[in-house]
Design a protein around this nucleic acid. Structure first.
Lengths: 335, 335
DNA sequence: CTGAAAGCGCTTACAG
DNA sequence: CTGAAAGCGCTTACAG
C-alpha cells in the first residue's frame, strides 16, 4: 500500500505539503498542489483513515446497537439512521444483540476500542452494567425508541400516550368491550407503557379494567395474535374491538377471523400498532398507530451528531405518531 | 483517555510489558502481569484499536454494501452476516446504497480509507467503475446474492433454476396457462434470471411462451402484484396459475382476488418467491420458493473471512433453495 | 509557502 | 524475562 511518503517522493515535495493538499489547506502553491494531486492519482494513493483517526481522536464512525436487525421495525430505524449518517458524513457500525446482554456489553467494549465518536443504543433497556460501561467510555450516547431511569439523551415515541389514543379512538367510535393483545409484560420498554396507555384510556372514560380482556403473548409476532384473540374471545365473546399492540399481531387476528368466519370490522374491530407497509394491504386495510421508524432513526443520528459536536440538545426528544384511519374499525355510533 | 504509558507508569513496568500482557504473551512473569492487570483495571484502560490497526494493517472490520437495509430480504441477509461475523470476531460497517451508483463508489472509497479487511457486495450489479475501484483497493471481495461477468467470488442462489423449478412445479400439478409477475426486466440480477427460468420450464415441457401471460412491474412490491394480475387476467382470463417472483407481489394477487371474489387456489393457483415469514400466514398459506437469506448472509461472511485469511475457496458458492409446499396451488391432476 | 521534527498509541525485533 | 528504540502513516506547531 502506498503511503504519503511515496506520494511526497514522486511529487518532489515534503510529506507536510502532501498532507496539506490532502486536507485542502489553501496555502499550497498551485504548482505544487498540481504535482501532488498528480502523484496521488498515478499511485492510486488513499490516505490511511486509521492514522488520521489516531491523531484526531475522531473516526467519523457511530456505533449502533439493535436487538435484531431483521425485524421490520429496526430495519426501518436503521435505514433512517443510515441516510442521515451518510448525509452528515458519518458511518455506522451496526450490531445486533439478539437480546443477549453480555453481547451488548462486549459490543460496547468494542465501540470503545474502535473509538467510535458516538453510540446509538436502541430499544433494549439499559441495565446497571451497561450504564457503567457507557459512562466509563465517555462517548456520547443517544437512546433510541427506549427510555431509561438513567440520565441519557433519548429519541422516542411516547408509547403510553399513543396507546391511550388508540384505545380512546375505539371508545370514541362507540366501543366499550375492548380487548388488548399485549407483548410480554416484563418488557418494560414496549409492552408495559402500552398496557398502561390502555388502562389510562379506560379510566379516562370511566370504564372498568377487566383482565379477561387482556392477553399477554411472548412476543409481537403473528402466532401470538392468533392464539391471543382466541383466548380472549373464549372468555369474553361479547368483545367488539381489539387493540393489537403490533401490526403483526393484528395480522394474526385477521387470520383467526378469516378461519372462523368472523367479519372485520362488522363483527370485530381491530386497531394495530406500528404502521408497517403491509398493513395497508390487509383485507380490510388496517387502522393502526403509525410510528415513524425511519424518522426516529434520522433524528437519533442527527441528535447524536449534535452531541458529538458538543452542541446543547434537549434530553428528551419525542417523535410524533399518528393514527392511520383505515377500514378495520366499525363506527358503532353511526348504527 | 488513558494510554499504555499511563498503565506502564502505574504498574512500574515498561510499555513493552504492558503490551505483552495485552496480547496475552505468556513470557511475562506472573507478578508483573498481575501489576499490569490491576493498573488496567484501576485506570479503566482500553487499548486504542486505531493504533493497533495501524500497525497490523488489520481492522477486524468488514464493509457491507446493500441496496436497502429496510427491505425484508436484505435485513435477513445482514442479520445472517452479523451473526457469523460476531462468531468469527469481526465487525460490520453496513452501507445502504439506495441504488445510487455514485454512492456505492464513495462507500468503496471509504472502505479503502478505513482499511476494512474485506467487502461484501450485495445484490447490485458491479459496473466497470466499481470493478476498477474494487481491484485498485486490493481488498478481498465477496459478491452476495448477485452475479457478475467479472471474476469475483460469489455466494448466491441460482434464481434461474429456482424459478424454473417453481414453474415446473405448477406444470406438474397440471397447469398449462401460467402467468408470470416479473420485476423490472432491466434488473439483470434478479428479474432476468427469473424470466429465463420461467421460459426454460415452459420449453422443457413443450409449452409455448406467450407474452400476454407476463407482466413486468417496476419493482417487487404489493401494488405491482395487484395491478399485474389485473392486467394479465384482462388479456388472458383462462389463466389457472401464476408465478409471482416475490412474496409481496403474491400478496398483491391475494388482495386483488379477495376484492374480486376469486378464490385461491380453487380458481387461481399462486406460487411465490422468497419465503418471507408472513407468507405462511396468508389465507391460504402461500406455496413459495424459499431462499435462505439468513444462511446466504452467514456463508458470505464465512467465505469472505476465508479469503481474508488467504485460504483457497471456490469461486462460486451456490446456496440451496427449496419449495415450501403449502396451500395456494391446486392440483389439477387429481380432479 | 515549505520542510524537519515531534507526536498520536501502539507493537515488535533487538539487546541485555 | 524485560526495556529502549524504531516504526506504523499521518498531522501540526515551529522555524525559516
Amino acid at each position: 500500500m502506498t503511503n504519503i511518503r511515496d506520494v511526497a517522493k514522486r511529487a518532489n515535495v515534503s510529506i507536510s505539503t502532501v498532507s496539506r493538499v490532502l486536507n485542502h489547506q489553501e496555502i499550497v502553491t498551485p504548482e505544487k498542489r498540481e504535482q501532488v494531486l498528480q502523484a496521488i492519482e498515478e499511485l492510486g494513493f488513499q490516505p490511511n483513515g486509521l492514522a488520521r483517526g489516531l491523531i484526531h481522536g475522531r473516526t467519523q464512525t457511530i456505533g449502533v446497537i439493535v436487538p435484531d436487525i431483521s425485524s421490520l421495525t429496526f430495519a426501518e430505524i436503521v435505514h433512517g439512521m443510515e441516510e442521515m449518517a451518510h448525509m452528515l458524513g458519518w458511518n455506522l457500525i451496526i450490531c445486533s444483540s439478539n437480546g443477549d446482554l453480555n453481547r451488548i456489553s462486549s459490543y460496547l467494549q468494542m465501540f470503545g476500542e474502535k473509538r467510535v465518536d458516538g453510540i446509538a443504543y436502541t430499544k433494549i433497556p439499559v441495565n446497571d452494567e451497561q450504564y457503567e460501561i457507557l459512562t466509563r467510555l465517555s462517548i456520547p450516547v443517544v437512546l433510541v425508541a427506549t427510555r431509561s431511569e438513567y440520565p441519557l439523551y433519548t429519541v422516542f415515541v411516547d408509547r403510553e400516550q399513543a396507546s391511550c389514543d388508540a384505545v380512546q379512538y375505539l371508545i370514541q367510535k362507540g366501543h366499550r368491550k375492548i380487548g388488548l393483545l399485549s407483548g410480554p409484560i416484563n418488557d418494560t420498554i414496549s409492552s408495559l407503557p402500552k398496557l398502561n396507555g390502555y388502562r389510562k384510556a379506560l379510566q379516562i372514560s370511566g370504564l372498568a379494567y377487566n383482565p379477561d380482556y387482556v392477553y399477554c403473548g411472548e412476543n409481537y409476532l403473528i402466532d401470538n395474535g392468533k392464539t391471543g384473540i382466541e383466548v380472549i374471545l373464549e372468555k369474553t365473546p361479547d368483545l367488539t374491538a381489539v387493540f393489537a399492540t403490533s401490526d403483526e399481531m393484528a395480522f394474526g387476528i385477521y387470520s383467526y377471523c378469516f378461519e372462523k368466519g368472523i367479519r372485520i370490522p362488522q363483527e370485530l374491530s381491530v386497531i394495530g400498532y406500528d404502521g408497517v407497509r403491509l398493513s395497508s394491504m390487509f383485507t380490510p386495510p388496517l387502522t393502526t398507530i403509525s410510528q415513524p421508524h425511519y424518522e426516529i432513526g434520522e433524528q437519533a443520528i442527527s441528535k447524536l451528531v449534535d452531541l458529538i459536536h458538543a452542541r446543547v440538545i434537549e434530553r428528551i426528544h419525542p417523535i410524533d405518531y399518528q393514527i392511520l384511519e383505515r377500514e378495520s374499525v366499525l363506527d358503532l355510533t353511526r348504527i
